[in-house]
């Protein structure tokens, strides 16, 4: 009897947690399927579902372009940071050189920077390089939060690799470059995938720099486009469109996170717990 009660309690708790976590997104989906006066009525499940908002988002503004912008910026950010971080992580994890501890400390302290603390300097830099209102400019600024994170996590992973592999390669006359690209790179593929995915999500979601360093609707990334969506009148926001756009950009993220659930948790743990 007591066991059944305990089991029931556990199930209720789990159900409460799951509803708490998932319901707001479910409600966004329900809202995104409603138009007109339906929006001003609270429904807990879709009634008269229509995809009109999903079409309107692409027709009324360059949302397709915004999605491509976000993908481009995030992909560029991930590719450059992984390349730079892989080389740096090899040095930090496998070679004992003077100043290594200090180096890792400064990299870690950069990851603590509030983005606002560099905003005016970054604004000036981006303008000075002629990259204002451009996607490469955004990707460059994103290095400030993707680089420290990728270096740190890849260093953690690379330290675990067996020393014998590297020694065997060196005996065979391989230089450091060959060791990294031919010996370590294949072994690190899962770690690179997890780190790259987390960096991709961070770049995809970034808002402050994207809001500040872009001007035209055509150069905006998805978060800025959603935040600045406005309707015909200044006072009423197009909630149906906003929810449709939100669902469009969130579904791929949720899918990725669910598929890579284990790896993401491992990556977060490596980045946070060991930091």
């Amino acid at each position: 009897m007591r066991r059944t009660a305990a089991r029931l309690g556990l199930w209720l708790l789990v159900a409460a947690i799951v509803v708490f976590a998932v319901f707001p997104f479910y409600y966004a989906v329900v809202t995104s399927l409603k138009t007109g006066s339906g929006l001003f009525r609270v429904d807990y499940w879709p009634i008269d579902a229509t995809l009109a908002n999903y079409l309107a988002v692409f027709r009324e503004q360059p949302f397709g372009r915004n999605i491509l912008n976000s993908m481009g910026v995030a992909a560029l950010t991930v590719a450059v940071s992984l390349a730079l971080a892989l080389a740096a992580a090899y040095a930090c994890a496998r070679v004992a050189f003077r100043g290594r501890g200090l180096l890792l400390m400064s990299i870690l302290s950069v990851s603590m920077f509030p983005q606002v603390a560099v905003l005016s300097g970054m604004f000036e830099l981006i303008r000075g390089l002629g990259l204002y209102n451009s996607l490469p400019g955004l990707a460059l600024s994103y290095m400030i939060f993707t680089l420290p994170f990728t270096v740190w996590v890849l260093t953690t992973f690379m330290r675990e690799l067996p020393k014998e592999l590297e020694e065997a390669a060196i005996v065979d006359g391989a230089g450091p470059w060959t060791v990294v690209t031919r010996v370590f790179l294949p072994l690190l593929a899962p770690a690179l995938a997890a780190t790259g995915l987390l960096a991709f999500i961070a770049a995809w979601n970034e808002f402050l720099f994207a809001l500040t360093f872009t001007l035209s609707n055509e150069q905006r990334t998805v978060p800025v486009a959603i935040a600045l969506m406005s309707g015909a009148s200044r006072h009423e926001l197009p909630w149906g469109n906003i929810m449709a756009a939100s669902v469009i950009v969130t579904v791929p993220l949720i899918a990725l996170v669910l598929v890579f659930q284990r790896r993401i948790v491992a990556g977060l743990a490596a980045g946070a717990v060991k930091g």
Partner: peptide
């Protein structure tokens, strides 16, 4: 909730 962008 963690996977959903803050703006969204």
């Amino acid at each position: 909730p963690w996977a959903i962008p803050t703006i969204v």
